[in-house]
């Protein structure tokens, strides 16, 4: 497996060092570990990494500096894979991220996930490979909102869409729901039809469905 060159941004020194050690130990190469958004932008410009892992809330304002930095970075490099970590679930952060660079190669996770080492590393790999992963909590929250156009979906279809949005493959969804992959394919086909996505490149439609999902919320 090729080494994934990673830029890490996290203002808490303890956590930053812990994460850097973890990544270095499991086949990533942390080329820069920085403590604020400005340094993050500079480090990405300097190292041209394969992956960015950043905290959303960072100095100086301690609101969403990290998020804004990666949205800016992805304007220049839309394919730059990024994983944003957040202490709390905020759906608008997720949709901002998914709006950037066509929603490819994006991860939005609660910080808690770093503790489940294997799963966390697997997510980093998937995002680095261009997949989109959204924290299940975000998905769960959004599922509760019952407004158009998701209102036309059946419960099972919503469940499947939720897993799609979380970044699972069809096979993984089938395994989780204990159904055949063919059944999952059928559900996904129905979802795409109901949401009005023409048949085409599969991953694009998956991203579009995820985006619909995330945008389907009361206007803030």
């Amino acid at each position: 497996m090729r080494v994934i060159r990673t830029v890490l941004a996290e203002d808490g020194a303890l956590l930053r060092e812990g994460l850097a050690a973890l990544l270095d130990r499991f086949g990533f190469q942390v080329v820069a570990a920085v403590g604020d958004a400005e340094a993050l932008v500079a480090a990405v410009g300097e190292h041209n990494p394969d992956l960015v892992v950043t905290d959303i809330r960072m100095p100086p304002g301690f609101t969403d500096e990290g998020l804004r930095a990666i949205v800016r970075l992805r304007q220049d490099r839309p394919e730059l894979p990024v994983v944003a970590l957040s202490q709390y679930v905020e759906t608008s952060y997720a949709s901002d991220l998914l709006d950037s660079g066509g929603g490819v190669g994006v991860g939005y996770l609660l910080k808690d996930r770093v503790g489940d080492v294997h799963e966390f590393l697997a997510i980093l790999h998937r995002v680095a490979a261009g997949e989109t992963v959204v924290d299940p909590q975000v998905v769960r929250k959004l599922l509760k909102r019952s407004s158009t156009p998701l209102a036309t979906l059946t419960n099972r279809e919503r469940e499947v869409l939720g897993l799609v949005a979380e970044g699972y493959s069809n096979a993984a969804i089938a395994a989780r729901l204990v159904v055949t992959e063919a059944a999952v394919n059928k559900h996904i086909g129905n979802i795409f039809t109901k949401l009005g996505f023409a048949p085409g490149e599969d991953r694009n439609r998956r991203v579009l469905a995820t985006l619909t999902y995330l945008r389907d919320r009361a206007q803030p």
Binding site: G12, L19, F62, Q87, K111, D116, V117, F120
Partner: peptide, 21 residues
Amino acid sequence: LHDGAQQRLVGLILQLGLAKV
């Protein structure tokens, strides 16, 4: 709490996760 306790706790969870692995 966010920048202190919560950050440290995430660090601790990371260490414990690492130890578990």
